[in-house]
Design a protein around this nucleic acid. Structure first.
Lengths: 206, 206
DNA sequence: ACCTGAACACCGTTCAAGT
DNA sequence: ACCTGAACACCGTTCAAGT
């Protein structure tokens, strides 16, 4: 199902509807079913039942579509992390789990969100949203510092190190690198967050 | 200079020479001058002064060329890390610096080495070399454990966490994500390795 | 205002044919 | 044994033309 038939071309549904939003939706679907290399402007147009030139009425180029797809991902990811944080009790580990879980449920979209394509993108909004996620982590670190749970240090520097490890863990497991010696994901998250927590505390009573 | 002129096509230099090696060299050059998106089979063939079909005598497909480029990168990276490690005195931090420095001197090739393309590659040798680098880190961790410098734990799990953070730091800085709040690279490496070291030690005299 | 059809310059890949 | 030329099915992008 959800396979775009040729009859979709006849459906006048998108005609005066929101083609832009429809294109983003189809792009995410394609990403899910075909992977990153399936995200071509022409394929998205075909899925939406419009001509190959139609998307150019709504996006200046392929990069803008990619940015819109990333944007949608950042929004959902941020919501998932907030939800888990407000659920409470777990602290940083909960947010870390939310982060890694999002990546594993949306592997192709995650790659788009944190891939080189978007990083070099001219689209400002997407880059800003990406930084907002990092800001969220920095905020959490500041709160943990205030609560005395972790030691001092520049919150942004610690946030980047934290993000770096989460991103690295996600990439390794998504790519299946060293799969034969890779511990189960939850065990890996456990170890990684433990290292981060103790590392942040630092040599307190050394 | 090093700009492939049309006269290169007339040069019989590669004719019975090692076209395969020449293609890999030109691929790395292209990567350096044009970035990852410049690494096309046709462009490499043009740079080498042969027809677009010629590379297929030496590589089954684009993926095999990419794997060969990655292989060359892994070899050089491993050599750099070894050299730094045998230089002695710095411990893990020295190896970490060698890792990050290689990435910054060969940004496009680094992306190829640790990108999704190679991860999904069928080429066994490249994946094995990638794992060898990880094995090198695991080895270093075991030695540190034996020396009592860091606490206990599964070396592979710690190695993956360590690699994850280095990879993440590299990616963030190469992509220029959060560039406006990003601390200088050496400062970031300092913070990251400190977190890793103290994190590995764990709650010793807690 | 929004979309189509045809075109251009690129890809990766294949295959008959040349030396 | 190694390479070329031409072809096929794909891209992203542009532009005149249709409604």
């Amino acid at each position: 199902m959800a396979k775009p038939t040729k009859s979709a071309r006849k459906t006048r549904a998108y005609h005066h509807g929101d083609l832009k939003a429809a294109l983003v939706e189809h792009a995410i679907e394609l990403l899910r079913s075909e992977g990153p290399e399936g995200l071509t402007l022409r394929a998205v147009a075909r899925a939406a039942g419009v001509s190959q030139a139609a998307p150019y009425r709504h996006f200046a180029d392929r990069g803008e579509l990619v940015a819109a797809v990333a944007q949608e991902g950042f929004d959902r990811m941020q919501a998932a992390m907030h939800a888990r944080a407000e659920q409470g009790g777990e602290g940083m580990k909960g947010v870390a789990i939310a982060y890694v879980e999002f990546a594993h449920r949306n592997p192709a979209q995650y790659r788009v969100m944190f891939g080189p394509e978007l990083a070099r993108s001219e689209v400002q909004s997407a880059r800003e949203t990406g930084r907002a996620v990092l800001g969220f982590v920095a905020q959490g670190i500041e709160q943990l510092q205030k609560a005395g749970a972790i030691g001092p240090g520049k919150p942004w520097s610690i946030a980047i190190s934290t993000w770096a490890m989460l991103h690295g863990v996600v990439m390794l497991s998504l790519d299946g690198i060293a799969a034969d010696v890779m511990p189960p994901l939850d065990e890996l998250i456990e170890d990684a967050t433990r290292i981060l927590m103790f590392g942040m505390v630092g040599p307190r009573r050394g």
